[in-house]
Nucleic acid binder design. Structure first.
Lengths: 206, 206
DNA sequence: GTCTATATTGTGATAGAC
DNA sequence: GTCTATCACAATATAGAC
């Protein structure tokens, strides 16, 4: 095969997707117009409909990306075979790193979760996300006496809450505590990794 | 004064405000049309512009309400003179109660925080919200040796995260862990009050 | 595949009768 | 104060030339 199949086409499709990610994730479905996405991608409005049939379909592609991006990244760490306390330390650090690099995704997902739970259900069906992995791992560790007996669901939500909300509410916290200083807040989040890890580990020690 | 001034007018204005609260908070600024609000209020579209000049002005009224409703309610508990551990227990319980009764407000606020930080700044200026109260109280308790030395801002964010995110992400968590069972999730949140309180208190004990 | 032009519907907002 | 009718514009989406 000498020809590179659809090389040009794929490039345009990717330009659209990248532009749509940026604008949709920052402004939401209704807060975004097709014109904005076309401008961001540097192409014509009609091309959006050529590659994706409708605004909804384009949004679904972006939402699927964002959801799969933010949820299952940490499964690999969870099923690795290091000590549970090390796992938690790595999950907190890597998850917070990822969130800091994608600051708008948490509020974007939270908004969509509440605005359209049905779409969420579709996406979850199609993706290989397996929350049981985390529950099972914690139950296993409890059996072995490595962590204190407790509801593993509460523990999972504790970890996620402490990582996600400081990013989802960043502009507010940043203004209240740091006078909108960007670097100061990033430093605050960096310090937070150890604080959250210690916080969690202390709560599960037998 | 025998006449009840603007009795009829106030009633309509309130109907509009209540309808706007419901629709805006569930669907956001751009996700809501003036027609939806008028339908919800059972009145004509034009009346919205008669009482509030524009969609933005009506939204500002709703956002101000939601923001002032969710943020400063717990200041009173904080400045009361009971023991700090009792304060935290009461704050967690009352705050989670309030959030459970207003399930859509957290994601609504988080979305607006990211979408329009400037509006947030205006609202905060106008309201009497004083985050320093919490910082000062914790610093004071540290001086007296009642709680372990730590960054009070991290502590405040820990408490808020553990209370807010489980409500903001309710439809997702509910589906994953409880198969969308409403009562089961409310029970889960009810149990959570004690878990979060113990969690926090353990982390601040000297 | 990419563009221009256009169809069509929905939006926020206003004018004016009552 | 409340309604009907209507404006001006922006939105998604499509048709058709190239």
């Amino acid at each position: 095969m000498v020809n590179i199949p659809e090389a040009h086409s794929l490039s345009t499709e990717n330009k659209i997707l990248e532009a749509a990610k940026k604008v949709f994730i920052e402004q939401g479905l209704e807060g975004t117009s097709m014109q904005q996405i076309a401008d961001e991608a540097g192409i014509n409005k009609s091309l959006l409909h050529y590659y994706f049939r409708s605004k909804e379909k384009l949004f679904d592609a972006v939402f699927t990306f964002a959801f799969q991006y933010i949820v299952p990244q940490i499964e690999d760490i969870m099923v690795s075979d290091c000590f549970i306390y090390v796992k938690i330390e790595r999950i907190v650090a890597e998850y917070m790193d990822m969130l800091m690099k994608n600051q708008f995704i948490p509020a974007f997902i939270l908004h969509e979760i509440n605005r359209n739970p049905d779409r969420l259900y579709q996406i979850m069906q199609g993706s290989g996300i397996r929350p049981e992995i985390f529950v099972d791992q914690f139950v296993e560790e409890m059996k072995h006496g490595n962590i204190r007996p407790a509801d593993p669901r509460q523990l999972i939500i504790n970890i996620l809450s402490l990582c996600i909300l400081p990013v989802a509410a960043k502009p507010l916290i940043q203004r209240i505590f740091f006078n909108t200083d960007e670097l100061a807040y990033l430093h605050f989040l960096e310090e937070r990794k150890k604080i959250v890890t210690d916080f969690i580990i202390q709560s599960i020690q037998p």
